[in-house]
């Protein structure tokens, strides 16, 4: 599955546009890490626990979007966008969406 946030894949022709596909994932870090992050907030610096949380979450969301595209019969996803929103205190949602397309020669 080719994924790009551009309109087209250079040198490849889009045969079919299959519309929106999307993946989302909501995650929370456990209370202990929340507290540690609170301490870190006082001194600044990277919040490793949260970086990791959002990274895992983004991977899962992407995986889900790919599953949808596969089910639609696509071999590439173009114009992919990520959006992040915090749903409730301590829980963040990663949302990713794009256009599923069929390319002529995906290799």
């Amino acid at each position: 599955m080719l994924i790009s946030n551009m309109e087209f894949m250079t040198g490849k022709k889009v045969l079919k546009h299959l519309g929106l596909v999307q993946g989302s994932s909501v995650r929370a870090k456990h209370a202990g890490k929340d507290i540690m992050a609170g301490f870190k907030n006082m001194f600044g610096g990277e919040l490793k626990a949260y970086t990791e949380l959002l990274h895992e979450s983004r991977e899962e969301a992407t995986e889900r979007m790919v599953q949808q595209a596969e089910a639609a019969g696509a071999n590439a996803i173009l114009n992919v966008r990520y959006s992040t929103s915090s749903i409730a205190a301590g829980a963040a949602e990663i949302y990713v969406y794009g256009t599923a397309v069929v390319l002529d020669n995906p290799e």
Binding site: K16, H17, L18, G19, R64
Partner: peptide, 13 residues
């Protein structure tokens, strides 16, 4: 060339 196929349920949940 442009269409919206039906997507299966339960991928995002």
């Amino acid at each position: 060339m442009y269409s919206n196929p039906k997507l299966p349920e339960g991928i995002n949940t």
